[in-house]
């Protein structure tokens, strides 16, 4: 039934039943048709919003099965000077310099590809959009907006290097201090 028909049938109804007061005369007696419809539509909209919100929440998994961010990278003594590709399968490079040891997460800060290490140029270069990082993980060319992450490092009592990729740092000077940089001679 269209809006007009509804209105006309309503006026007919009020004409044949004189008992019913006009809506405007006594506001306390109840809501008008318009108010009732508005409330109905409001309730419908609220219901829809709750359903949409719940379905939206449905798309966020509560449990995900992903490998642990923490791993044992073996004895610290095993890392010689330079960039170690030993843990690239964990997406981590371990770098040993004359001052100490740090790790870099092998995920480009631009859009997440794995850069390659070029020993001759001492640079990390990303194959996807051409970002270039130096040995420290600082972005020096290409589009990446930030430096490479350095993960949290810890040396266990056994002398093993424990790398935690869930705690990261990319800015100076914090990244050059423990726990993101271990001063080992």
């Amino acid at each position: 039934m269209s809006e007009d028909q509804l209105k006309s049938s309503a006026s007919v109804a009020s004409a044949v039943s004189p008992v019913k007061p006009p809506p405007s005369a006594k506001p306390s007696s109840g809501m008008s048709r318009g108010q009732f419809l508005l409330a109905g539509y409001g309730a419908l909209a609220a219901f829809g919003a709750v359903i949409a919100g719940s379905v939206g929440r449905f798309f966020f998994p509560n449990v995900i099965y992903e490998p642990s961010a923490i791993f044992n990278a073996g004895s610290v003594k095993d890392f010689n000077s330079g960039v170690s590709l030993k843990w690239i399968n964990k997406q981590v490079w371990v770098v040993r310099t004359s001052k100490g040891l740090y790790a870099l997460i092998a995920i480009c800060r631009h859009l997440g590809c794995t850069p390659n290490w070029f020993q001759d140029q001492q640079l990390f270069k990303c194959p996807c959009h051409g970002s270039v990082y130096n040995l420290q993980g600082t972005i020096i060319a290409g589009p990446a907006p930030r430096n490479l992450w350095r993960p949290h490092l810890e040396i266990a009592t056994t002398g093993d290097l424990i790398i935690d990729k869930s705690i990261v740092q990319d800015s100076s000077p914090m990244r050059d201090e423990p726990p993101f940089f271990l001063p080992i001679s």
Partner: peptide, 9 residues
């Protein structure tokens, strides 16, 4: 292979 990106991709 999530650890190596083809070059260039």
């Amino acid at each position: 292979n999530p650890h190596a990106t083809p070059n260039p991709e």
